[in-house]
Design a protein around this nucleic acid. Sequence first.
DNA 1: CACCAGGACTCGG
DNA 2: CCGAGTCATGGT
Length: 299
Amino acid sequence: MSESQEYHLKVPMEFDFQQNLNYLLRESNEVMYQIEGQKITRVVEIDNLLILIRLSYKEAYLRISILNEVHLTEEQVAKLLIFVEDFFDLTRDLKPFYQLAKADPILKNVASQFYGLRLMGVPDFFEAISWGILGQQITLSFAYTLKRRLVERFGEKISYHGQVYWAFPTAAVIADADMADLLALKLSRRKCEYLQEVARLILSGQISKEAYLSMADTETVEKAMTTIRGIGPWTANYVMMRCFRLGEAFPTADVGLLNALKVVQGLPEKPTQSSLLHLKKCWGQWCGYSTFYLWRLLY
DNA sequence: CACCAGGACTCGG
DNA sequence: CCGAGTCATGGT
């Protein structure tokens, strides 16, 4: 009988567990995690090993409980903790963001309304890029439905106490999937092609999170990513923001962002791209956080 | 019923 | 380079 394994991570100052929980709760059709009470349960994949973890919060610490029977090496435990840190973006110091927001008419109110909210991450590269592709053009609720179908058709699962928890499909599985099976999920043919192409590029090592992270700046990464079919400026910036954690990432064409800016500024129309370039200069390293906070006004 | 959704590709000028 | 059409489906 193995005892349940537990680990703890101290959270930084500018952290409000409830704000992050509220963000995770905003979409009831989400398939990548479940929330019961004040606890988040999800699967994490480390070295091809599926780990079921439950996250809770107490007195400035995140508690990570491992629910399934796995034996982890020290190195794997370290990777798991890094995953959780990345998920909540714990290593970033948000003081400069709130400093900036205090003097910014657009950010002032949202920053205090959602104080302690972290830019929740999608650490897995294939998941992040797939989610970007799925989210193109269609309504968010439909995108969540497509993701659920994709995950429940091609992902692996862990059952625990009558609940089912899913891991996102691996690039290998999607690369080998039959086009007909992908089409049956009601993705457009183009999106199926994009997903398979990306999966194959990852499998062959032609693209990787590590390689993109080693690039000099967001412009270089964006230029490299947008050469891939199906990845335009929006998707590239979305992935840079949620997965690569580049503060300057800024999906300036994002409809949600434009609508939020319109509301906050009381504009008659959506803001122009030139006004977004101005915001990019003002917000610098905090474009991603600004976007994430503004999204919270809508969803 | 028309229109738009957390876009990007394709093709004609 | 630039504008218009196309894509799948679901919600309003």
